[in-house]
Design a binder for these strands. Structure first.
Lengths: 349, 349
DNA sequence: TTGTAGGCGTTATCAT
DNA sequence: ATGATAACGCCTACAA
């Protein structure tokens, strides 16, 4: 491997000078020497060794990202937002999949610390306070989503978002609304369930346990949950799903039972994935700005690293009304009443 | 930051001894001293500095992954396969999104080299030979998918896979089969198009340019392509899409024009994403083992790093027959003929 | 069984 | 304007 010393010899200058030229140091260097160095470096195909530099400067310009699962489209998009912003600032992103497992989180955390990453983004998944407390010198860290540990974070108001989705159905005339909840270990899942309940109560209705089916945030989870909901004697005329994946699972379950959407049952999804407008019927869904969440998380982290402090951020969500919601059977009069509703809920800063 | 020296002092031994204990060196160390070192290390919350170690050993136990786009589910799953296998072997994964752009690829490549990653996985996207040639000391690298540069690679036989999908439709009685092709800059796209054409020819049919619509591997690409295909005077009775995303776009386009799937038009997807069985109608699709592709790519890379050489791998694909394919209108007699066909094409090594 | 010393490739400091 | 030198934290001959 060619080092700065090789370049120095070829250019007949000292390594210090080479360093100064290649790092665009403010230190003055004569034009003649500068040229020689640049030529020599190119000729030798020289790449500075970031390890040596990092060791000395005590910063790696690398950041670690802990995600439950990159193959989950939700986190994949967040990661993309992170990586784009990181790349722009010349930082490398090291990804780790925790599967929401504490042991994996701990071992990855340790690995990242050994690598001396400049910062950490912890997305979704439960991080026990004790896990972080155990670390003497935790690097700057920000969280994505709500979090037990006090960390600057980027998130959306999931309670509000779910309430908006539920209100949309209430406004259409639905009174019996089912809810496909995510796993209770997830804050996101709990917040969305809360929002649903809150909206019902505000409308003077009583949330019933039998109208809620708990499962994974997945296609299979949505299908299974819907099957359970439909087993109820008074089946719901509308369903709010905690993710688009679940909603698509619900669509399938309804179709298999010969129920039409939205004529017999309305369905609202969550996330507004690219798929939402394409499935049949096109899915009404609460848009979560995933890419922006990732991007902002990285920007927050950067500020935290550079300025030593940083605040939290709540991003807005937006209900996208499409074909999968309509008035309940017997109330079609209100169908097609005007153009699609657009309900926006802004974050509180 | 606490260093090996701090631990040494606290345990009243030399740094060398600490290193030996903490690295489980074969070098003999007395039980008493070992205990003291371990206690001291824990007490101080010591984490070895991997930068220093890497600098010395000239290996970072990090690998770089160049992907067109992690937010694309296809690459997200491959990345997951890579990361799982890497994590198991204690290696960190640095991800870079190239967007298939040469400038991004080049700058990320440089960044990875500066970081002295032990190896590289280059997935999809065109890498110009000259880009790699320009690098004096390219670390061990493997490719995912076909590739202009001669590198060990993991891939599937896309020609064969597309031919199988097309044959399935031919066997059902279709004679006019449309094809939604991916961007011609992608080898995968070209191979799949070839396979389609080859199958037609083998059946004595002549591939027609008007039966092929070129577009992105996306929902929008599939929708737009289908609209074009349907504009043709003799519209196809079946469509092979180059990805499930395109197929779902096609489903939407067909639905919007009042055409039923599979009664009026059959549709075959590609990739067999988790969505395929859930959309309505459930999508017949060619399964590509994405997770395994990622995993094997990493294993190949490991062998390349450790043993200096490594061969290529072709993984098998498998047609999953579901609801979206049936005989063309007027040939329903052959519908429901027996249980679903399962066509398997094995890789040639 | 334990310790000492040199060097991995940089950059910052201090001379010249 | 340029160069010499030390130090970042670790590992490994080699010495004791």
């Amino acid at each position: 491997m060619v080092t700065i010393l090789d370049v120095a010899q070829r250019a007949r200058v000292s390594p210090a000078t080479v360093s100064r030229v290649l790092n665009h140091s403010s230190h003055a260097v004569s034009e003649e020497v500068r040229r020689r160095v640049i030529v020599a470096a190119r000729r030798l195909g020289y790449f500075p060794n970031l390890l040596a530099r990092s060791l000395l400067k005590r910063e790696t310009s690398a950041i670690g990202v802990l995600v439950p699962d990159v193959s989950n489209p939700y986190y994949a998009v967040i990661l993309r937002g992170i990586e784009d912003a990181a790349g722009t600032s010349g930082r490398a992103v090291v990804v780790c999949n925790t599967d929401r497992r504490r042991d994996k989180l701990q071992s990855y955390l340790r690995a990242l610390l050994e690598r001396r990453v400049d910062g950490l983004i912890i997305a979704g998944g439960t991080v026990h306070v004790s896990d972080l407390k155990a670390i003497r010198a935790l690097p700057p860290a920000v969280a994505v989503g709500r979090h037990p540990v006090r960390l600057p974070s980027v998130r959306v108001d999931n309670v509000q978002a779910a309430a908006t989705a539920t209100q949309h159905l209430l406004a259409l005339g639905h009174r019996r609304i089912g809810f496909l909840a995510g796993p209770p270990t997830s804050w996101t899942a709990r917040d969305r369930l809360d929002g649903y309940r809150r909206a019902l109560r505000r409308a003077g209705l009583t949330p019933r346990a039998r109208d809620v089916a708990v499962g994974e945030f997945s296609l299979a989870g949505g299908l299974a949950g819907t099957v359970r909901l439909l087993g109820s004697p008074h089946r719901p005329t509308a369903i709010v799903a905690s993710s688009d994946q679940m909603a698509i699972g619900a669509l399938r379950a309804l179709h298999d039972r010969g129920l039409r959407v939205p004529e017999d049952v309305s369905v609202v999804g969550f996330d507004d994935s690219p798929l939402a407008p394409y499935v049949v019927p096109a899915l009404t869904s609460v848009a979560i700005p995933m890419y922006e969440i990732g991007r902002q998380a990285l920007l927050l982290l950067l500020r935290l690293i550079e300025e030593g402090r940083s605040s939290s951020l709540v991003l807005p969500t937006e209900l996208q009304v499409r074909e999968s919601t309509a008035p309940p059977p017997g109330m079609e009069s209100r169908a097609r009443a005007g153009r699609p509703v657009l309900l926006v809920s802004r974050g509180d800063g």
